[in-house]
Each structure stands twice: as structure tokens, then as C-alpha cells.
Amino acid sequence: MIEKIVKIKNKAGLHTRPAATIVKLASKYKCEFFIAKDGLNINGKSIIGVMTLAAETGSELILTFEGEDEQLASDEITDFFNRGFDEP
């Protein structure tokens, strides 16, 4: 199991478009992927779950990856968070 703590860097926060990208990225992998924030632990492969987090800029999320390809998934998804979803 891999656990990563990431921060939301872009101004608009985790809105629909980056949420959809995260779900798409995660769905490529076999491993389970969860995002936790404020006592909610949501499935990162579900768009409604990711959007329910309503993560604003500056907030911290805990990403959990578990399964055979967890390393690859963790690398790609953590990188997407750290790039601020390629948004200002």
C-alpha cells in the first residue's frame, strides 16, 4: 500500500475537469485508489466521489493506492496533483 499526501495547488480547486481527469487516470490501473479528506474516504475511480470532496485550493488530501500496479498509479496521479492539474 502506498500513501501520499498532496495539496491542491490550482486556484479553482478540484473542480469537475480535473476530477474527471483523475478518475480517468485512476481507471487505467488495477489497483484500488482512495482519496481521504475530513473523514471522508472516497473511491478515486468514481467521479461523484471525487467531486463530493469539493477540495478547495490549499486543502490537503491523502491518496491511498493498493494493488499490483500501485507504484505506477501513484506516480502518475501524484504528479498530476503536484502539477496543480496544469492549471493556474
Binding site: 482512495f34 481521504a36 475530513d38 473523514g39 471522508l40 474516504n41 491523502i62 491511498t64
Partner: peptide, 9 residues
């Protein structure tokens, strides 16, 4: 159930 999924006010 992950402990991260459990919360209490």
C-alpha cells in the same frame, strides 16, 4: 474500513 473513513465530531 480504513481509519481514514471514520470520523467523529
Amino acid at each position: 474500513i480504513d481509519q481514514k473513513a471514520v470520523s467523529r465530531k
